[in-house]
């Protein structure tokens, strides 16, 4: 399989995925993932002429929940799990850009 052809911009995609990569990781993942992408090229050989994805099942109205109050978590549980909290809120670094 021609693995040269299939390449992704690992740096860009990792940014989309919110994962910081070292140059070393970038290089390693690049070659490993290019191999995988090259392998999945096999899907191009499948003749998909007539194939349409069917809905195996669909939810009917009575599988929806009624608008009734359920059990919420206590405020303390949310705060205890948060790595940083203040004023009853989860604390995050200052958000600048909207």
């Amino acid at each position: 399989m021609e693995s040269e052809k299939h390449t992704m911009d690992v740096g860009y995609v990792a940014k989309l995925a919110a994962i910081e990569l070292t140059d070393q990781e970038k290089e390693l993942f690049q070659s490993q993932l290019d191999q995988v992408l090259s392998y999945v090229e096999q899907l191009n050989e499948v003749n998909l002429g007539e194939v349409e994805v069917r809905n195996e099942s669909a939810a009917s109205h009575d599988q929806l929940r009624s608008d009734d109050e359920g059990i919420s978590l206590s405020h303390e549980v949310i705060m205890a799990n948060a790595p940083s909290a203040s004023s009853g809120c989860v604390r995050v670094p200052k958000i600048i850009d909207q």
Binding site: E69, G70, I71, S72, L73, S87
Partner: peptide, 16 residues
């Protein structure tokens, strides 16, 4: 989810 929709409640009190 079944958490109430409440405006103006104390922060993080209608959560699950």
């Amino acid at each position: 989810c079944g958490c109430l929709r409440v405006y103006g409640a104390d922060a993080n009190t209608h959560v699950c």
